[in-house]
Design a protein around this nucleic acid. Structure first.
Lengths: 341, 341
DNA sequence: CTGTTAGCGCGTTCAG
DNA sequence: CTGAACGCGCTAACAG
């Protein structure tokens, strides 16, 4: 591997001149530029970005730390991120935390050592520790999808409380009064916010909250299955289920299917984040659709602004609109309640 | 940000000693080690990985270059990759080429400048150019999912010819004789291999290949829709459709739905790579299921072996088994052929 | 428009 | 067991 020095020697100029040619910085006469470029071609010289990064204090790399890239919601976010970062010359590293704050801290540790220019973080829990780490190392961060208390940090998300309220109001509007809430872990803002929206909607409709109907299981298919099993064993059983995310919904659907409980005739089901529209013949779930791709884009744009030195005060909170999509998984409550053995 | 030198001063030792403590290399007395560790803690010292990488010629970073992270098949691969790379201290950068060889080369250029230790490549076309680039820069590569001619390069994939033949034999076994093949771009090995398997299966069954039934559109929902539109306009129409990947299948399903053509009563449909099992209530498509997660794992393991200096001769070709999953989208051909207006 | 000097922060010599 | 010196490849600051 030849270095900038080899090129300089070969072209009979100084390394500085070569550097200028490569980076189009400063002035260079057409003649020297040409001879440098020829030397580069002849030697097959490839600039070493690591050395450049060491010198310039900038790595042109951002990280995307999320719970599970396997969830199409996050995949779509990732695509949005890459679509803005890539063309701007930024590399994107991704890390799966599986909602484990320990994993999250380990990754953040690694990432700061690598001097990433910024981090897009979907916090695995209360974000205070990770945020403190990042702040102490002066690395810009945008919190994605989930809410954090601090007004000092940039955030991009949807309004889980409002959107949840909308979704549940749709159910109460249909006449449902026993609605089970299958949510994520208590430490995650979207999980608690969606419960909060649920409670608001119930209050709007004058329905008391039955705590047995509210579950904080976790954002996974297995947890959805389990929570559905639990609430369907209650007496009386709920007439509607609210899954706080797509994976919970998938697990719940599986359980209902096993129990031969039909949606929406026997029970209604709503959720956040179904699968992408064009994957489905005929979307079935009534959901709040979050603009995942746009969330990824906006978050990346905001982060890159900070990286480019936008003043770190006046942190922004970008709250994108979710959209209620009423489809075929909701109907008026069944006249005869579901009987579970 | 404090440097190793600050720590050394603070602890009253040389930088070398600090380095030894950090990297657990060489001997250090318990006493000095303790005082160094205290200094590190007091100063909040964070080793600069970029400097280390410059020195050590190793970046502990690999790249995953694929067509579209949005496709759950590739997402699952990505997860497999990260699950082996992460714990070993490797960062993973991902790049979306959208099957564009130009984009692919741009990314590869960027990645080699960044001195990534290795690349996992899902080639966007004939892989010769990208592979030559990588080889000339001495960066190890494992080709994923798609086949390349060279016996010199590591590969991890399934056997598209055999699996396709299996899938189509299932159709001919049911009595189908007019089977449309909706494939990816001609430049992509899985697309041509699946066509090859299709032709073999037809030959096995003594059915001549009707070239009008074979389409090379591309691995996307829109292309699937379009190809389905085209073949369903033929007279006589096919009695079965073979989508070369999941996205093509989704597009085809949409078109069939519009045409009020029912699967499997009016037409049969098979595909590679449905959605992950636990996302679906009751999987419908008859498919060949590829072990995507395992492919990602194996490819990453192989790559990291090369990175760790496994001899580059004896390139490996790992061919993982696909599995035929017969489900409800296939049946014997309809007695009355589909009539399209 | 071009060159010189001096590091970026670390780890690898090789001496002690 | 520890330290001094050097250089990885590049660019910021100055000259000129």
């Amino acid at each position: 591997m030849s270095t900038i020095r080899d090129v300089a020697r070969h072209a009979g100029v100084s390394t500085m001149t070569v550097s200028r040619v490569i980076n189009r910085s400063g002035y260079t006469s057409a003649a020297t530029r040409a001879s440098v470029e020829r030397a580069i071609a002849e030697l097959g010289y490839v600039p070493n970005a690591v050395a450049r990064h060491l010198r310039s204090k900038v790595t042109k790399t951002i990280a995307l730390v999320l719970s599970d890239i396997t969830n199409p919601f996050f995949t779509t976010i990732a695509r949005g991120v890459e679509d803005v970062a890539g063309p701007r010359g930024f590399g994107v590293m991704f890390c799966n935390t599986d909602e484990d704050p320990g994993e999250e801290m380990d990754y953040l540790q690694m990432l700061t050592q690598r001097q990433v220019d910024g981090v897009l973080l979907v916090p695995a829990g209360s974000a205070t520790e990770p945020l403190r780490l990042l702040r102490s190392r002066n690395v810009p961060v945008v919190v994605l999808d989930r809410r954090v208390r601090s007004r000092q940090v940039d955030q991009v998300r949807t309004d889980s409380v409002a959107d949840s309220r909308l979704l549940v109001s749709h159910l109460t509007g249909l006449g449902h009064r026993r609605i089970a809430m299958l949510s994520g872990k208590r430490t995650i803002s979207t999980a608690t916010d969606r419960v909060a929206g649920y409670e608001l909607a119930l209050r709007d409709a004058g329905i008391p909250v039955d705590p047995r109907l509210v579950r904080y299981g976790g954002y996974g298919v297995a947890r959805g299955y389990q929570m559905a099993t639990e609430v369907m064993a209650l007496d009386p059983a709920p007439t509607a289920l609210f899954a706080a995310n797509n994976f919970i919904a998938f697990g719940a659907i599986r359980r209902l299917h096993e129990l031969r409980i039909h949606v929406p005739d026997d029970i209604s089901l709503v959720s956040f984040d179904d699968l992408p529209d064009d994957w489905l013949i005929d979307p079935f779930l009534t959901v709040v659709d979050q603009p995942a791709y746009e969330m990824g884009r906006r978050a990346a744009e905001l982060l890159l602004q900070r990286v480019d030195g936008a003043p770190p005060h006046d942190a922004q909170s970008i709250v994108l609109p979710g959209e209620l999509m009423v489809r075929r998984s909701t109907a008026a409550p069944s006249p005869r309640p579901v009987a579970v053995a």
